[in-house]
């Protein structure tokens, strides 16, 4: 007896399958993910024009709600919203209402009352954007900009865009994700996207202390050893290692981690010769990746950042049109009832 079907897409999709929130990649199908990538491709062209703005969100208010610090994600969301001609409000909640004891739902209801159309939410607790979309402000489009260890769907999609630019298709690709999978919302979303888009294999490479329980249930293979793990790999995704992992006895030292799991020029040779190297950033040079690799020819790390703006424009415009479609549907449904009664 299950109270809620976790794969049920209803929360983030309209009845006819359009995106209205963007919370997780779980439950989204391949045509929809491909649609996001294609839409982003069309926005890349916008970014190359002298006048970089399109009027898709003109008159709409987008609120960047960052309950957790971020530089890149927040600035690319802001740029994306501005290129779509939206009015943008940036709120740093750490220093605002919640520190005065106001509850999350009260803060959001106040913002909704200011006629916001979209919240871009980053929160340290897994499921916070779900909670907002489901229980607090269902009429506002919610874009998940990273929640706890759960999901970071726009980051994963910009990574997919980067992979597609270099590898053209996902079928047949073998992708390795290396490092702190346990704490990584990026890895969870990447695994989900790669499986949906049809990658041949997703391999996670880490010591057991940095892997979630039953990680195979996500559809990936586990490899403890990097030498074996990089064999036949087309795409290497390195994850950031937080310093505090030593304190919880998850790892003995940064030095030992780098020796075993850091991506050096030598280890890179174990992958396929045309393998690309990715990293969601910010990079710890000398902890998870050697500088020469991060700046090398196979690295596409800066492409990822550029693609971030296009993906966020795509997701924001798609979710907004889904919300608008649902609102007008709700209005037309309500209309006859009003007339008859």
């Amino acid at each position: 007896m299950t109270a809620y079907d976790p794969s049920a897409p209803s929360l983030q999709l309209t009845r006819d399958g359009q995106l209205k929130h963007f919370l997780t990649l779980d439950g989204l199908d391949r045509p929809l993910l491909t649609d996001i990538l294609d839409t982003a491709d069309s926005f890349i062209e916008v970014g190359e024009r002298t006048i970089k703005n399109v009027p898709l969100l003109r008159g709409r208010t987008v609120v960047n709600l960052f309950f957790e610090a971020s530089t890149r994600t927040r600035s690319t969301f802001e740029l994306a919203a501005k290129r779509l001609s939206a009015d943008v409000l940036n709120l740093d909640i750490n220093t605002s209402a919640t520190s005065k004891g106001e509850s999350l739902s009260d803060t959001l209801l106040n913002l909704e009352a200011m006629a916001s159309d979209m919240f871009v939410v980053r929160h340290s607790q897994s499921g916070a954007p779900h909670f907002i979309a489901e229980s607090v402000t269902p009429g506002v489009a919610i874009i998940n900009a990273g929640d706890g260890r759960h999901a970071h769907p726009t980051q994963a999609m910009l990574d997919m865009l980067t992979i597609r630019q270099h590898k053209h298709e996902f079928e047949g690709l073998r992708v390795a994700i290396v490092g702190d999978i346990l704490h990584s919302r990026v890895a969870r979303s990447q695994i989900s996207a790669l499986k949906t888009l049809g990658a041949k294999e997703v391999r996670v490479i880490a010591p057991a202390t940095l892997l979630p329980t039953d990680v195979q249930s996500l559809g990936c293979n586990v490899e403890y050893d990097m030498t074996r793990g990089l064999e036949d790999i087309d795409v290497i995704i390195m994850l950031r290692l937080q310093r505090e992992r030593m304190e919880g006895a998850l790892l003995p030292s940064e030095r030992e981690f780098y020796r075993l799991y850091g991506l050096s020029t030598e280890k890179l040779k174990l992958a396929r010769p045309d393998a690309i190297v990715m990293h969601p950033g910010p990079i710890n040079r000398g902890v998870e990746i050697e500088s020469a690799v991060a700046d090398g020819l196979q690295s596409v790390i800066l492409n990822q950042v550029t693609n971030g703006i296009a993906i966020r424009m795509a997701v924001m415009s798609m979710a907004m049109s889904g919300q608008v479609a649902e609102r007008s549907q709700a209005q037309s449904n309500a209309l006859p009832k009003g007339i008859n009664s």
Partner: peptide, 11 residues
């Protein structure tokens, strides 16, 4: 419960 669901939801 530490298992499939916590792994997927990052709890």
């Amino acid at each position: 419960h530490d298992g499939m669901v916590t792994t997927r939801l990052g709890l």
